Simulated assay, not measured.
Amino acid sequence: MTPALATGTARLHRVVVERFDVAGAFTISRGAKRHVDVVLCEVTDGVHVGRGEGTPIYYHGETAEGCAAAIAEIGGQGGALTREELRGAMPPGAARNALDCALWDMEAQRTGRPVWDLAGLVRPEPVRTAYTISLGEPESMAEATRAAWGSGFTLLKCKLTGEGDRMRIVAIRRAAPDADLVVDANESWAGLDLGAESAALADLGVSLIEQPLPAGADEALARLAPALPICADESCQSLADLDGLRGYQAINIKLDKAGGLTEALAMAHAARSMGLRIMVGCMLASSLGIAPAVLLAQFADWVDLDGALLLASDRDQSLHVVDGLLHPGTLWGEPRNNQGLSA
């Protein structure tokens, strides 16, 4: 899983902000979103073009405009861009993710080799992805569960909020008795009896709890013997956070948090060496933002890559899901014909 380093002589070609509407609303404990703004960047060697997309980490204060400005600043400094230099020149986040993934994609165009081959990974196969059940009243979450289950999703990720959560899972379980369930509290369980909550959810067939406590308040987990494994999301942003984790049995790797596929691969390698299990997750994003994570998902324990499925519309050549299986596509990371600079 060691990332390949060579990137030719790529330079920034363009960077733009794009908006995608959400299908309905995406609701978690922090609020509801009805659209997502992403940053799209392209790099070129003068002949070939590579593309990457990033979704700002809003709870870090990132914005699409700010990410675009950061990419433009790096691109305006002149000189060739390489992935390893990028890791030192930009902090983790969506801007670096978009640029890092664009560099990988351009290398695929330049060499005629897919990114999975360049990175020393296995050829991607379809993977089972979770489908997110947005936070709501128990019956509305049950209704969404029935729709997802009926569409072939067998792994459901349920958003919780720290109050009335057991009733939500009871309703979801009744709606889909055989579904595999994971829950995401998005840091909302401060003050709850974590042992009791995990035991109650285990009895309801939940298999994983994601980020129950606020980032920085993880010391309580180190004294806990939970009935379920606990996954770090907000508490594990990039490779630098791994050594300080306590009380977690898994981590959620998101390319936007990590700052690109290069960092994400390093995180996955380090996590495995530490005995941690891996979830590969995402922000709301188009298929262009999801596609690089499909490579990482090939060796993950849980896959949560439904960000494009929650949009009202997606890009052309979007990734396809059939019976809950997310299929790799040719939108990103595969050699493409007609490589030319866009206007």
Rank of each mutant, 00 (worst) to 15 (best):
D301H: 13
D45V: 08
L261G: 09
P3A: 04
R51M: 03
Y58S: 13
I57C: 12
A264G: 15
L288K: 14
A227L: 01
L309A: 14
V38W: 01
P92E: 12
L204A: 08
L221F: 03
A202H: 12
Q298S: 11
E219T: 12
G281V: 07
I133P: 00
L296V: 06
I209L: 14
T330Q: 13
D301K: 05
L284P: 01
L156Y: 02
A68R: 15
V303I: 10
L99S: 07
L261R: 11
E219W: 06
E143R: 15
A202F: 01
H48Y: 06
P328H: 09
G205E: 10
V294G: 01
P214V: 02
L265W: 03
V322I: 07
Y58Q: 12
G195V: 08
A144T: 03
E107R: 13
S151T: 10
A293S: 15
R96Q: 08
L325W: 03
A108I: 05
D45F: 02
D316C: 01
L309Y: 00
A72P: 00
N186T: 10
T129Q: 09
R146C: 01
D256Q: 10
V182Q: 13
V43H: 01
V43T: 07
R128N: 08
P212Y: 12
R272Q: 09
D203S: 13
A258S: 14
L242T: 12
P292K: 14
Y59N: 12
Q237P: 00
T27I: 12
G205S: 14
A232S: 07
G244R: 15
T145A: 05
A297Y: 01
S318R: 15
Q109G: 06
I74D: 05
A6K: 06
T27N: 07
P229R: 13
A222F: 00
P292Q: 14
S287H: 07
A144Q: 15
T44A: 09
E42H: 13
M1S: 11
G31N: 07
L311P: 00
G120S: 11
V115H: 02
R19A: 10
V303N: 07
